[in-house]
Each structure stands twice: as structure tokens, then as C-alpha cells.
Amino acid sequence: MSAPDALSVDNVSISFGGVKAVDHVSLSAEQGAVTAIIGPNGAGKTTLFNILSGLYQPTAGTVRLFGEDVTGMRPDRLAALGLSRTFQNLQVFFQMSAAENVMVGNHLRESHNPWRHLLPLPSMIARERAAKAAALTELKHVGLADVADEAADSLPYGSLKRLEIARALAAGPRVLLLDEPAAGCNRVETESLSELIRRLAQEGLTVVLVEHDMAMVMSLSDRVLVLDRGSVIADGPPKAVRDDPAVRAAYLGADA
């Protein structure tokens, strides 16, 4: 093991009013691997994502991104280091068009100096045009190119889930956290989503996803982590996890 893991979580815990929502969770994701986190509702999956993306401060433990300690770092700083995410409960910019949503994802690659935005100089207009073209490419990847100029609040739920993925990808992340990406998608959409994730992983993107669609998890993941009441009850390749008696008892049910 020469290169550090893309994402490594060591004994992370967080409590809310005495309740341990995440309790000594560890996980490591190699670069280019797809890691799935599964578990019953309330197991702490989204809470863990909120810690990883900097929205929550863990009460204990460390989070490392490519070996660098990023525990408790602000979300925008983490994004600059290459960590992007989507949300289970949509966090879409509803007043913007689909393309503009994705262009916000491109924020980190744009000038952050508002002095340069005070006059509509040709250079700024040209950069905006290029940003729009880049956004269209990202939208094409998730099959939303034809609604680029539609207002986000007119798009159906499944499209908005994919719009969030396009926005996250526009930042050019090295690690992508997807919170229930297939929720609200039909079979065909789920399949094309799996295809997209597989391709991104092959290109070297590290993907961690929370997902309830077991078929998708089993076919897509290199590694599955099972959470129950805040703790890891299983961690390994999909097949081994599926056959784990503790997992079957806690989550999948005897006939899964």
C-alpha cells in the first residue's frame, strides 16, 4: 500500500443529544472503487455522509482525503479538495435552469474575484459561454441535455436526482458521494445510472453511495458497508456481505 486511500474514515462518531447517530464507524475507499453503504432507515447513513462532506463535525475520529486529515473541514474547502456529493432530500437551486444548476457546480474553476465581474467585458461573456457549454456536456452524461434551459422547479423528481449528479460532476471531483441516486428512478434509468457510475469509476473517480436498490448495490459495488443503529455490522465484498447472517437478520430479511 503505497498510495493512501482516496477516502479513509477512522472511528468516526457523532452524537445528537446523547444519541449516538454514528458510532465508531471506519471505512476506506480505494481510488476508483465503488463503495456502497446500506442499512435500514435511521442507521446513520446520511449522517455519515454529512460528516464526510463537512456539514457535521464528528465528536470523535478522523476523516482523511487522499491521506490529508480533513476532519471537520468546511464543505466548500472539501469541495475544493475534490469531494462532491448529492443529497437524499433534493438540494436543487429551484429558481435556476438546469444548466445554471450545473454551472454552479463549476464554481470552483471560475474566477472568485467579483471585481472582474463588474463589467460585461467580452472575456467574461466568452467564459460564461464556455461554462454553459461545459454544463451541457455534463447534462448530456446524465441524459438531461434536452431540458438544459428548463427551470429546475418544472423538472420531475428523477430528473432532479440526475441533475444533482451532473452538478456534482461539474466540479471535477476525485471523490463522489451519492445519497440514494436511484431513488425515484425507473428500471431503465437505474440501469443507465449504474452504467454512468461504472464508467466514472473506471476513469478513476472514487464513488461512495448510499442506496436502497439492492440489485444495483450488488452489481455495482466493489465493497459494501452495512450500518445498523450507527455501527458497522458488516464490511466486505457484496457477495460476502449478502451471505452474512448478521446482515440478513438486521436488514435484508431471511429470504433476501
Binding site: 462532506s53 468546511r74 466548500d76 469541495a79 436543487v92 437551486f93 445554471e100 454551472m103 454552479v104 464554481h107
Partner: peptide, 20 residues
């Protein structure tokens, strides 16, 4: 991009933050 960032944080501060 400045105006877009402002409108983004208007709609969702959390999403704007995680977008950098």
C-alpha cells in the same frame, strides 16, 4: 459567476456550500 453564486446560496445554502 458571482451573481450565480449569490442566487445559488439564496436557493440552498447547503448545496451552494458543497458545490464549493
Amino acid at each position: 459567476p458571482t451573481g450565480r453564486a449569490l442566487r445559488a446560496l439564496h436557493d440552498s445554502e447547503i448545496a451552494a456550500l458543497t458545490a464549493g
